[in-house]
């Protein structure tokens, strides 16, 4: 069965778009988790100054719309002589925004670790840094993983905002076709299916990670 020119063009564009989406999502998700863990640790254990910096970062990036953040990064930073390509600008914005949310999940998990775990490590001669790095964070990651996974799934969907900085991904490609053919409903329903697939794949990967990290006593695998 031959597809109509509309669908042929639609799928060619969306496939191209989905590749760009994945290229945005994967580094943003990984970067977001890393920033989230670092910021979460700093906000929980840092000295007064670094903690204030961490809290400030989280307040700004959780408190302002992502659209605004992307605008500032792409259109504002050139005023300071920093020029980012649309792709780099989008990934930077996603990472920072996602990291701010992730840091909150990580912070909650860190605070939930019982004081006995610190005492046990300190009594063996662990330094404060070693205690946090080897004992507290590995446990907190297991507690935070469900929240962090949720944030990644959310990131998959807000990655569509990349079009704001002219980085054309799944939604951007679809919108072009929709405008061209004036067939919005069909196009956006197909886009919806694409996102559903992306999220399903992400959930399968997250499940696998949960399984790998599973330890008895930290919820079921």
């Amino acid at each position: 069965m031959e597809l109509s020119p509309f669908y042929q063009e639609l799928f060619t564009s969306l496939n191209r778009g989905v590749v760009m989406s994945v290229a945005l999502i994967v580094p943003s998700a990984i970067g977001g988790v890393i920033i989230g863990i670092l910021a979460g640790v700093i906000r929980t254990f840092g000295g007064r100054f670094v903690r204030a910096v961490g809290d400030g970062y989280a307040a700004v990036f959780r408190g302002t719309p992502l659209v605004v953040q992307l605008f500032v990064i792409y259109f504002g930073l050139p005023n300071l002589g920093i020029y980012l390509s649309p792709y780099v600008a989008a990934v930077t914005g996603f990472m920072l925004c996602s990291g701010a949310y992730q840091s909150e999940y990580v912070r909650g998990a860190l605070l939930s670790i019982k004081s006995g775990q610190y005492l046990g490590a300190q009594a063996l001669g662990f330094t404060t840094f070693q205690t946090i790095f080897w004992i507290v964070v590995p446990q907190a990651v297991r507690r935070a993983i469900h929240g962090c996974g949720n944030e990644i799934i959310y990131l998959i969907k807000y990655s569509s905002l990349a079009f704001i900085v002219t980085c054309i991904e799944l939604t951007g490609e679809g919108k072009t076709i929709a405008t061209e053919y004036f067939r919005f409903t069909e196009v956006f329903m197909v886009i919806g299916v694409y996102y559903l697939l992306l999220v399903t794949i992400a959930m399968m990967i997250l499940k696998r990670i949960e399984k790998t990290l599973y330890v008895p006593g930290f919820g079921r695998s």
Binding site: Q117, G120, A123, L124, I135
Partner: peptide, 19 residues
């Protein structure tokens, strides 16, 4: 840190590393 390496401690509620 050096002191604690030389003095072992056993707690009432064990404080094993859960992970």
């Amino acid at each position: 840190y050096r002191l604690r390496q030389q003095v072992g401690m056993i707690f009432q509620d064990f404080n094993l590393f859960d992970h």
